[in-house]
Structures are given as C-alpha cells and as structure tokens.
Amino acid sequence: MNEYTMPIVFGVVVGTIGRMMMLRTDYRQYPTYLHGKIIHVALGFIAASLGAVAVPAIMEMNFTAVTFLTVAATQFREVRNMERNTLSEIDDFELVSRGKAYIEGIAISFESRNYLVILTAFVGTLFYLIWNVYMAIIGAIICLIISKVLQSGSTIKDLVDIEYAPPHFDGAGLYVDNIYIMNIGLPERQEEILKYGMGFVLIPKNLNVVNTIAHLGQRQAILHDVSVSLGVFRDSGTPALVPLIKRDLDDGRIAVFILPQIRDREKAIQIIGAVPVLETAIRMPSKSDVRNREAN
C-alpha cells in the first residue's frame, strides 16, 4: 500500500461501474448475454485501469509513461474492429439485416464508451489525489452523468413526423400513400400483404433531415429495429414478403412498408420514432457555405 493505492482503486472501480452503466441490453439486442457482456466489462476494467494509473504517472513526473495511453487508443480501435467483424458475420443470418451503417454506428459507440471510461477513471483518481475522496465521488458522478448524456444521440422522431398510411395495390403495384414500393404479381401474395402489411410515411421536418433519412443505411436501421421489436412475417425463400422503405423523389418523404407480427399501430410509430439517428447518416446541407450564399 502506498499513497496512490486507494485513488487508483477508486478510479478503476468508478470506471468499471461506468462501463456497466453504459452496457445495457435493449431492443438492439446487443450485446446479449453473459459472454458478450464479460468481454466488455473486462475491457472496461482495462480502460479504467489505464485512466486511473495515468494520474500518478503524471504526478511522479513520469511523463513518458503517459504515452501508454496511445496503446489504449490502439487497443480500443481493435474493439471497434472486433464488434464490426462479429456483427457483419451475423448480419447475413438476420431475417432483416442491420446494414453496414448501423453496424458501424454500434462499433463506434463501443469504442467511444471505452474512452468515456478512461475519462471517468482519470477524473476520479485525479480529484482523489488533489482533494479527497468526497470530491472524487462528486467528480465521478458528474462524469457518469456526462457519459449517460453522450450515450444517447437523437432519434428519428426528432427529425420526422410519422403517419400511418395503409398499404394498397394499384394493379400489381404496391403503394404506401402515393409512394411506389414494389410489384407483386400473385393475387394470394397481395392478399397476404394487405392482411399483414403496415405502412408509415415519414415526413421530414426540415431540409437537413431529407438527406439523413434518405440514407440507405439509416433506412435499413429503421427496418431492422421495427422487425426486431414487432417481429417479422417472413422466412428465408420468401423474397416477396420483404419489408421495404422507398423515397418520394418530389418531397423527400419516406414510405416504410413492414410486415410485423404484432400489428399495433401506436407501438410501431413509437418504435420507428425511437430508432437512433446514425452518425454516419447525418448530413448538414445548411452548413454548406456555397449553398447558403445562393439561398440568400
């Protein structure tokens, strides 16, 4: 035991608690059970140790030791690769795939959460050494709150208004509202689709949003989330029963056509609304200088 033992232990503990708080199994169904969680708690523990040990290293004027944080960065980039690989491998076996953009979004968040853990452990240990354990607890709690806030990005309902629009056929063409979805030839298939299908129209609230929700990865993410939460009426080898999202080229509205097993209109609207906006899909045309100059 020396003067640094307790602060380091404190930092490691709050960091690991932080990782556990950010690790939740929800409708994204990932990570699911014990083994997936163990991996991430263990990595969170390593991240917390790195953050906690950095403080005494600086205080002992051992500045070169801080360069091991770069090792941490490499390590956690590896976490991102690992998540990406696992999810991409599994994606082929999903009835409605997540899509590459969604997978990338999940992988990014796994990496960034480890950095938040490092920050929490660093602040915890630093405050403990500078002041005392009570300040350290306060600092750690603030960090955990910040982590929680950073963890949740915006969702689809912030960007669009969602309206129910029953799917209908015009000849062989399937439409949701006035947006063409696909051509279904067989009358029995058409009956199935009218019986089980639901349609929703997403109306963008402003111009930035039009491009974001048009992103193919974002659209696939919506389909995946809805299918996970409400079930999906399809099997391998029934390509006609596939949920689809199509875009109205005139005004950028998006028509979502789904085949859920639980046909609850309100729930479906809530679930579509709760789909996270993928970081990779966000577009900000309003921040383009040239465009703004022309608009003025």
């Binding site: 000849g171 062989a172 051509n183 279904i184 030839g185 067989l186 029995e188 298939r189 390509p239 006609a240």
Partner: peptide
C-alpha cells in the same frame, strides 16, 4: 406461385 416458391424469386406481373 410454384416457381416463386421453388426458385426464391418474386413473381412480378
């Protein structure tokens, strides 16, 4: 309908 089931395609009219 049979062909659609057999070859995993979609029957379009």
């Amino acid at each position: 309908a049979n062909l659609e089931a057999i070859i995993d395609g979609i029957a379009h009219a």
